[in-house]
Simulated scan of single mutants.
Amino acid sequence: MPTNGLMSMIELDRRAVRASLDAFATWQPGSDDPGTPCAGWQLGDLVAHMTIQQQGFARAVAGERTERADWAPTRHNDPVGVYRSACDQVVTAFAGLSDPTTPVLLPEVGPDPLPLSTAVGFHLVDNVVHAWDVARSLGARPSLDDDVVEAARTVARDVPDGERRDRPGAAFAHRLPLPDGVSALDETLQLLGRDPRWHPAHA
Rank of each mutant, 00 (worst) to 15 (best):
H123P: 03
G5N: 12
P113S: 07
R175G: 12
G40Q: 04
A173I: 02
A23Q: 01
D45E: 03
W132A: 04
A69C: 08
H49D: 06
W27I: 03
S143N: 14
A156G: 11
T92A: 14
P107N: 08
V91Y: 00
P107H: 03
S98W: 05
H123A: 12
L43E: 00
G162L: 12
G139M: 05
V17K: 00
L43D: 00
L191A: 10
V134D: 01
A170I: 08
A95L: 07
A58D: 01
D145G: 15
D88Q: 11
T188F: 01
N77I: 14
L43A: 02
D32S: 11
R164Q: 14
A173Y: 04
R197N: 13
N77W: 09
A184N: 08
G81T: 14
R59W: 03
N77L: 15
L21T: 09
P111H: 13
M1F: 12
F57P: 01
E163T: 14
E64Q: 15
T3G: 07
L185T: 09
L176A: 04
T51A: 06
H76M: 10
W132E: 05
G193T: 11
W132F: 10
M1A: 14
A152P: 08
R141Q: 15
P107A: 05
Q55R: 12
G63K: 13
P37G: 06
G40M: 01
L178F: 04
A203V: 11
D133F: 06
L191F: 07
V61M: 01
D45A: 03
V90W: 00
D126Y: 05
V148A: 05
D186P: 11
A184R: 11
V109P: 02
P103T: 04
S117I: 08
V149D: 01
P79M: 06
V129W: 04
S20Y: 02
G63W: 07
F172K: 05
A60C: 04
M7S: 09
A58I: 03
T36L: 02
D133P: 11
L97K: 03
Q54R: 11
D45R: 02
S183R: 05
S117L: 06
S31G: 10
T3R: 15
Q42A: 08
G193V: 11
P34C: 06
R153H: 08
S137A: 15
A152W: 02
V125H: 07
D32E: 13
S31I: 04
R197D: 15
V148L: 04
T188M: 10
A201W: 11
G169I: 10
G96M: 04
L124F: 06
T92Q: 10
L138C: 08
P2C: 07
R75K: 13
F57M: 14
L189M: 15
P34V: 02
S143G: 14
D33Y: 05
H49E: 02
T154I: 07
H174E: 08
P115D: 07
L6A: 01
D126Q: 12
T101F: 06
V82F: 11
V148I: 13
V125E: 09
F94L: 14
T118F: 12
V159N: 08
P79Y: 05
L176S: 01
A135P: 04
A173G: 15
P37W: 03
M1P: 10
P29F: 05
P37S: 11
L191I: 09
E163N: 10
V90E: 03
V17I: 13
H199I: 08
